[in-house]
Nucleic acid binder design. Structure first.
Length: 424
RNA sequence: GGAGAGAUGGCAGAGUGGUCGAAUGCACCGGUCUUGAAAACCGGCAUACUGAAAGGUAUCGGGGGUUCGAAUCCCUCUCUCUCCGCCA
């Protein structure tokens, strides 16, 4: 959520930067500014009237004590009138506040100056490519490999739950667990504290990180208890810091978590959802940081390098792209995506997204820090997938399958975690 | 799930309609004293909005109500604790 002070101070720049998202925010910002100044004026009026009432009320008490009953009653009826008047002003004040939040809640983050213009993912900026492509003459897609080697049973998941809820079994399940362990132990080496958060969150947490109200329909909602299944560990982990004031010396705050993630993916269809490409339930290790505002872009770069190191260790060909304004998520100010090459599908699969949210989340979360000068300011938050499992599994299966068709080689770094070096 | 009790500043804990934004203790910060420390003593110590400042306003778990006036009374929600039941 944008800060009102920022809108007041930099409206022109914000309008310019929002154009990068192909959004014209001029009129909405004008409206917010107008509502804001009206609200502030109303507050002054309210404060003054309230101050008057407080004085009157005090004198009622004093007059009664002095035994001046008539004067007291007179004052009381005057105060009563003032009290009614205040009720009206209060209602107006609250209504203005609601209107402002309503507007603010639906306004996405301002892309920072590193973000290029662009309408869709077609215009994302290729930053770098790494690794080599395996030479395979008859590569099978991962869903066929999964079936052939009895690793993942999609039909069984349909029986138990529905499409998009696969059952991993045997070496498929072990590979899954090995990847989780590998990612967590790497993150811990990198200085992240591991947490195991709840995977159901309340409404306030959903608002805190920006999934609500923007992505309302994307989350599974447990109606009986009014809780949401998390779409990413970002939600519970970042909300750990909701409503806190940390010391500047505590920065950077680094946390990592493995959780299953749940997404309704309403509207997805076709070959995009084939196999592991898009699931309703999947596993992911997430990294989250809260840092000093001056350091967030540097931190973003560090997180990008870290994610890259994971893909290098796994030996997967990948590329890094910088999202253009049109592809940027609602809450993000700057995002890098990681894509791995899928040898059999012959396309790039997104496996990680690393973002700087600047103050967008911390403003909602009320995540602040006390600077060394004693000033209370909003922190910057960042997070990234490190990594999302399904497409990593897909590309491991596809890229490391033996051309002979006899099996799949396990990346060396995973062998200590799997206990086997080959699926056959 | 049933019965009861409770929620106050960083923590502990007073306060049950009128100078209460809130006693007191601890913690914390500054000072005096000390070779240094401890102790003792003195002072400071919530957040937000508003104002040049003085100050004003709001906040005692959340929301609503009664009243001239609510931490204090009423309603409601959430959470915590105790007992019973159930249970990995």
């Amino acid at each position: 959520m944008l800060e009102l002070q920022r809108i007041r101070a930099e409206k022109k720049e914000i309008v310019e930067r929002m154009k990068v998202r192909n959004m014209d925010t001029q009129s909405i910002l004008d409206l917010i500014e107008e509502l804001d100044s009206e609200k502030r004026a109303t507050q002054v009026e309210l404060d003054n009237k309230q101050a008057d009432l407080n004085k009157m009320s005090q004198s009622v008490g004093a007059l009664f004590k002095e035994g001046k009953k008539e004067e007291a009653n007179e004052m009381r009826s005057k105060a009563s009138a003032m009290s009614d008047e205040i009720k009206g002003v209060k209602a107006k004040f609250a209504k203005l506040g609601d209107k402002i939040t309503e507007q603010l809640f639906h306004l996405p983050n301002v892309p920072n100056t590193n973000v290029p213009n662009g309408k869709s993912d077609q215009e994302n900026q290729l930053i770098s490519e790494h690794g080599t492509r395996p030479q395979l003459s008859n590569a099978l897609p991962h869903w066929e490999l999964a079936k052939k080697f009895d690793l993942i049973d999609f039909e069984l998941g349909v029986k138990l739950t529905g499409a998009g809820f696969p059952v991993y079994r045997g070496k498929g399940a072990i590979l899954q667990r090995a990847l989780i362990n590998f990612f967590l132990s790497e993150a811990i080496k990198e200085g992240y504290e591991e947490v195991i958060p709840p995977i159901l969150v309340n409404e306030a947490s959903g608002y805190g990180t920006g999934q609500l109200p923007d992505k309302e329909g994307q989350m599974y909602h447990v109606g009986a208890d009014d809780l949401y299944l998390i779409p990413t560990a970002e939600v519970p982990v970042t909300n750990i810091l909701r409503n806190t004031i940390v010391k500047e010396s505590q920065f950077p705050i680094k946390m990592t978590a493995y959780t299953p993630c749940f997404r309704r993916e309403a509207g997805s269809y076709g070959k995009d959802v084939r196999g592991l490409n898009r699931l309703h339930q999947f596993d992911k290790v997430e990294i989250v940081q809260a840092v000093h505002p001056n350091n967030s872009e540097k931190t973003l770069q560090e997180m990008v390098s870290y994610v890259q190191s994971l893909l290098n260790k796994l030996g997967l060909e990948h590329r890094i792209v910088r999202l253009c304004g049109g592809d940027l998520g609602f809450a993000a100010a700057h995002t890098f995506d990681f894509e791995v090459y899928s040898a059999a599908q012959e396309k790039w699969l997104e496996v990680s997204s690393v973002s700087n949210f600047e103050t967008f989340q911390s403003n909602r979360l009320k995540l602040r820090f006390k600077s060394d000068e004693g000033k209370t300011m909003l922190a910057h938050t960042l997070n990234g997938s490190a990594l999302a499992l399904p497409r990593i599994v897909a590309s491991i299966l596809e890229n490391f399958q033996l051309d002979s068709g006899e099996g799949i080689k396990i990346p060396e770094v995973l062998v200590p975690f799997t206990g086997f070096d080959k699926i056959d």
